[in-house]
Write a protein that binds this DNA or RNA. Structure first.
Lengths: 220, 220
DNA sequence: TAGATTGTTAATCGATTAACAATC
DNA sequence: TAGATTGTTAATCGATTAACAATC
């Protein structure tokens, strides 16, 4: 982690993809790989691979290429996947439950330690190995337990209220599934948005205009 | 839909966001808006707003601005949200169920007409107003019913098999929640990927390197 | 008409690609 | 040593922003 002054978001958003492909190669017991070969597999240019990796350090060796297992580990570290950031989930609806059950948080740098929902019906339900608590417990829980980030799987209209509480408690990292603009209210937050409906509208557009869209940014 | 030769993906991916903000303004009964005002609300530049909109036509009026309701409708049309593309869902696990229950497909240009799962346990379950069918019925169903697109909420390892069937049946539009690279196997497909774990890894990176990430592309 | 704001062209900025000297 | 492939600089390409003439 030496050179990482102001890495562009374009590069950052490609890192998980590198990590995935390198993990696969590693599982297939591939020892080394050249930027050209990796680029081929990933459908990008060799230049991009080398430029991207060199944002973080010179992981390769001239005339040889990159060690797959080493590079995989480097990127894992750069991404911070060895962390166990404590996360809480707000909202135990369909989406919240899917997120809780479906994701392998431990491999992604997180640990899900609690879930809250404002509906009495949900309270007491089990998701993975955590129990849904009433939202009235939220603040108390956060004061008693260190919480790094909140995953917001609640409707847009509910976000502001919860966000204000969380922010006041010092939680400033969010995985946000709503269309509420968190950064707009609190600018010193780190927010990753998942806008499923935007994504689906984009699919709709592209189905409509199939013949002539550019290829750029297709992936991801 | 006149000028739309090769609109860049950057522009396309911004359209849903315009649509959202304009819908809101419209609900607040705002009649007209200037590019400057809209840009302010959306946290972008006025130039970008005007450039983006002018990819599709001159919707504004000099000295006046844009009619909110008209512009909203224009974008709705550009996105094709008035369509009712017939969609089927493959996979009734946590994620599939969340997708089926959580999304307001009709407002997004789609209609969910069936759901399939390869597990006997799932068969017969009700999601929204559709019943989960065994995956063995898939091909038969697709031959008897027109299907425009498939939403893939199944594990990566299951995709290839299902994809081959769907593609053979002429289905070439996919909303893909797995890491399987559909475009790689069939290049004449339209694919929108939702890579939740990539997204979460990006959050992890940014939590690690909070102080010094660029702002570009933060939104979306 | 005067003021406002668009549509559009030109300038800038950043990201991607190409090229090649360094070096394993 | 000769061949391969990196790290890095320079060139290109595309996207964003600024500027302004057209016009409502």
């Amino acid at each position: 982690m030496s050179k990482n002054d102001s890495i562009s978001m374009s590069v950052i958003r490609r890192l998980p993809r590198y990590y995935r492909f390198l993990s696969e190669l590693n599982e297939e017991n591939v020892d080394r790989i050249s930027s050209t070969k990796l680029a081929q597999i990933m459908n990008v240019t060799a230049s991009q691979v080398r430029q991207d990796l060199n944002c973080f350090g010179g992981f390769g060796q001239q005339g040889y290429g990159y060690s797959v297992s080493q590079l995989k580990e480097e990127i894992k570290n750069i991404l911070g996947l060895n962390n166990h950031y404590k996360a809480i989930l707000i909202g135990a609806g369909n989406l919240g439950r899917a997120v809780a059950m479906h994701m392998n948080f431990n491999k992604l740098g997180f640990e899900l330690i609690a879930c809250f929902d404002n509906s009495e019906k949900k309270t007491g339900e089990k998701l993975a190995d955590i129990t849904v608590q009433p939202e009235t417990e939220l603040e108390d829980f956060c004061r008693k337990n260190h919480v790094d980030t909140a995953f917001l799987c609640i409707p847009r209209v509910c976000v502001e209220n919860v966000l204000d509480k969380l922010y006041a408690l010092g939680i400033k990292n969010y995985w946000n599934f709503s269309h509420y603009d968190i950064n707009d209210r609190y600018s010193d937050t780190v927010v990753e948005n998942v806008h499923l409906s935007d994504n689906l509208m984009t699919l709709c557009y592209r189905m409509n205009n199939n013949t002539k869209t550019t290829r750029a940014q297709d992936k991801s």
